[in-house]
Amino acid sequence: MKINTLHFLIAIAIIFTSCDNNSEPEAAPTPMPEASFSIDLPVSRILTGVRLTNTSDTANIKEYIWKYNGVSDTLTSLKTPFITYDEPGNYQIELIAVTKDNKKDSTINDIRIGDNYISAIRIANLYEKKWDVDEEGENVNPDIQVQLVKNDEVIWTSFVIPNLNPHNIWENVIPTPLTKFNGRGYKSDVEIQIYEIDDESKELIFSSNRNIKVYVGPTYDEQEQKGNFYYFSNHSEVRFDFVVF
């Protein structure tokens, strides 16, 4: 009797062991996501695209949510977006990574957006005309003056630059007070005017907001946080240096 009972218990153990061996293992839980990203330009400019480089672990990620400048963008495929800011200031950008089973992780980086400030004007060429003639009848270089105008009000006037060579590429540098210059395309809220000065009279020979044929730029040195842009009008060619802060 005792032997039969022992055999019975062994048989039951074998059955349970066999059932355990045939059962499927439980699925491993999805690991927590790790959200991370970098900003190519921690100090950038208004109206300029800023690249956000997503460096998160992409395993099991269902979607990324970017929060910036009062906007929340859900991006399921575009993981490295460009964003722009219209106003200068200090901002925070948040990235949220979401897994397929809705686990979340987030991270925040800071960015500073600066304004463009004109720092100098470089005159390459002034439109071709008959400039003043000297006593011997020879054509001489013009005397010029630069003005910065905002809302029809002159906010700065340079001294008179005598005998400026109108064809001396980029050697005619005129420093200006740092002046905010946030235009798009051809025009800005600040107009740069170049006058020829002749016997107490002034003739407007270049304006950054009038009759512009071509606008090029701006170019921008990310490390130095400065750049320049070009205006072409008739035969005039003027470059404006700017800094960002």
Results as ranks from 00 to 15, higher is better:
S56L: 06
S236N: 11
V133R: 14
W170H: 11
D40V: 15
I46V: 15
F242M: 07
R122H: 10
C19H: 04
E34P: 00
E237I: 07
K150N: 07
N109D: 07
E26A: 13
R184W: 08
D198A: 12
P162R: 09
I161Y: 08
I205H: 01
D20M: 14
N141F: 13
N168V: 01
N102H: 12
D40A: 11
D152G: 02
Y64R: 03
S236R: 07
K130M: 10
H235T: 11
I155H: 09
A27E: 13
I155W: 01
D73F: 03
L52A: 04
H7D: 07
S36D: 15
I121Q: 09
S44C: 10
V216H: 06
E138Y: 10
E63L: 10
P88R: 11
S207F: 05
E94K: 10
L52S: 00
N60T: 04
I192K: 03
V146D: 10
T179R: 05
A11E: 10
P29E: 13
N102R: 10
S38A: 11
Y231H: 08
I83A: 01
V238C: 00
E222Q: 11
D57H: 09
N139M: 15
P218A: 15
S233L: 05
T107D: 05
N54L: 05
E191W: 02
A97H: 06
N151R: 05
S233D: 02
T53K: 14
I194S: 05
E222P: 00
F8E: 14
K100F: 11
G114I: 10
P218R: 14
Q225A: 08
I144D: 07
T74E: 04
